[in-house]
Write a protein that binds this DNA or RNA. Structure first.
Lengths: 190, 190
DNA sequence: AAAATATGTTACCGAGTGGTTACAAATATA
DNA sequence: TATATTTGTAACCACTCGGTAACATATTTT
């Protein structure tokens, strides 16, 4: 049998990503990862020092929220920028299943194992939110609405509807986008 | 030893509430509930038919979101009503730890065990949201912001900060409240 | 009082968890 | 080629999980 440590490490790493993406934070465990990777779990301990080390290494690598990094080279925050960024951010959020599960994870715990992972994720998220950094009503409204976007995105995994709102319809998300845009406009005119 | 079925059922019931409130959805389990109640877990199966039945019974009883019911006798949705309801709802949300954990739960799963529980909870929540039932930008913005409120409330259990926003400061929540109010005003003026 | 029933506990089951140890075999080094 | 070292597996550990069965005792019914 062929033996290749690097290849094995990659298998483990990708198994971790895959499980987090598909099963969510609750599915992440040593046994599940080892099984998914098709590898003995002992190796996860030997190579990464257990789940903790794996998370740490993952946090340092941090290859999630990729497309958000495109928004990094920002200028001063104009209204048009804000609207554009908002649209990009919501689009990215709804497409990036992995990011969703990390955000979901943050609603469940915050211990030494996940600390680094979350810290890095948040520096990524910050790049969107930090566009408008003033302590204004617009900023607060903006943050609330982005938070709501996150909430409904996470909720839509298990629930088709929220009260009367159909979370499966594309139209709903367009409405949200439009509301977000209009809010920015209204606050700006004021 | 004294024996009293009703008293035992109450112990189990309260243990369930207590655990959900303190440990969240992840802490809810047969063993944990039995231990907290100081009772043999066999009784949970005998009296409630397991965790499923307990959840079902709890859903039917539904004594959470109490203070929201006060808002039930609503008139037509005026702007003032909306503002008032928004303020009441956010206040209730941040105080009602139990409701928070049920909302958190909805972000984790949706199976036959929890289905009824969530369904009832949502009819409660609906009483807030249904105030403004028209398909307007205001309504969408309003929903997003309430969603954001829920999100930040849940997040604040494990995270002190969200980017630059300090979730521990009372001022932050006032800012959110004000932003919500102002959004309602702006949309109304338009 | 005797019999039937309701209530409660303990011990157990199989499955799954994170984590370790002993060992086999492939690869690298001498 | 002989010897270390690395890579990988399988078996095992103690523990927790949901769920059940056997049993003891309190309470009610006859």
């Amino acid at each position: 049998m062929k033996r290749d440590r690097l290849a094995t490490e990659k298998k483990i790493y990708h198994a971790f990503l895959s499980i987090l993406k598909e099963k969510g934070p609750q599915g992440v465990g040593i046994n599940a990862i080892a099984k998914e990777a098709g590898v003995s779990k002992g190796l996860i301990y030997r190579y990464f020092g257990g789940l903790d080390g794996l998370l740490l290494q993952y946090a340092q690598k941090g290859d999630f929220f990729k497309s958000l990094l495109v928004l990094d080279n920002k200028e001063k925050s104009s209204v048009e920028d804000l609207k554009k960024f908002a649209k990009e951010a919501t689009k990215e959020l709804r497409e990036n299943k992995l990011a969703q599960e990390i955000l979901r994870w943050q609603l469940l715990e915050n211990n030494k194992e996940t600390k680094e992972l979350f810290k890095y994720t948040n520096t990524q998220v910050e790049k969107i939110f930090a566009i408008n950094d003033k302590d204004t009503s617009l900023n607060h409204a903006f943050q609330l609405m982005i938070g709501g976007y996150v909430y409904f995105t996470l909720l839509s995994k298990f629930h088709k509807k929220f009260i009367t709102t159909d979370l499966t319809q594309e139209k709903t998300w367009e409405n949200f986008d439009n509301a977000l845009e209009k809010t920015i406009e209204l606050f700006n005119e004021k």
